[in-house]
Write a protein that binds this DNA or RNA. Sequence first.
DNA 1: TATTGTTATACTCTATAACTATA
DNA 2: TATAGTTATAGAGTATAACAATA
Lengths: 159, 159
Amino acid sequence: MKTQPLLGHPACLLTRLDVHVQGQVTALLAPLGINPRQYGLLSLLGERDGLSQHQLCGPLNIHRNVMVDLVDELEQRGLVERRRHPADRRAHALHLLPAGRQLHAEAEVLVDRFEAKLLGGLDVDEAATFVALLQRVYADAGLDGDHDTGLAAGASGRR
Amino acid sequence: MKTQPLLGHPACLLTRLDVHVQGQVTALLAPLGINPRQYGLLSLLGERDGLSQHQLCGPLNIHRNVMVDLVDELEQRGLVERRRHPADRRAHALHLLPAGRQLHAEAEVLVDRFEAKLLGGLDVDEAATFVALLQRVYADAGLDGDHDTGLAAGASGRR
DNA sequence: TATTGTTATACTCTATAACTATA
DNA sequence: TATAGTTATAGAGTATAACAATA
């Protein structure tokens, strides 16, 4: 017996699951006043402080134009601060303020809890396998190279 | 050594992979003149002809308002046809026309080929495991119940 | 009273281009 | 000449509400 025609496609399965996850995480973070994208920015800065706006564009998958408003809002709320970039006077070095670090920590707890629930139907081994395979597919698709979170700014032009 | 902070989140991994897949499939189908959503509609009708517009809304994850334009275009291009619904005079029964069936077949080849490439980095067992786990997570999230592709129209109100 | 399809409207998001100051 | 950040604008997409026909 054939099941759902569309869900026979892994791509469709992936997309529908992502819509759900995206919606859930958005609703989860709403009480904290941030969306997934803003969480992502705080997370990246928490990992490596002082990155430029452009350096964050890749990992967050957004255009530099969009980044402006994103940083504007976080700065107005005292979560992040624009300072002079030590090496390039055109760029801004973004720094995580204490309030931002605090908020990110709270958000991370919520996200981790959600993800645990998302994979809660699998046992520990299965969950680990699933994530590992997801990472494999992700890397095989060449999506790893896009993350120049590193300092080597001079990457090959893409997009 | 810690890797990427954001990609440590399975949710983020999933979302980024989906953006890639969505973009690839869209580009893949573009030469055929359809988008993933239109492909989905043709696919569902190929499986079960004569569904109403409303019945297609759930599986395609779109509102009935959006469905109108979607069907309009496919009908104008002679891929699909609106007929009288035998059981409910308010509804339209959608039927796949030969040209639509043909186009869907061509599209399916392309999509299947892409998905094979997407999972091409995994061996056969791993790929099967990955898809199976994906389906498990999908079902555990309760996303299965949304697909009333069946004829029982009177579902519980959601959204 | 509820539902199917339809239409119109407003809102959000995104993509594009252009400008400045630096490199 | 190319790049980081900024701004403005147009377009696509989405959400909401309302309506007519039918259940």
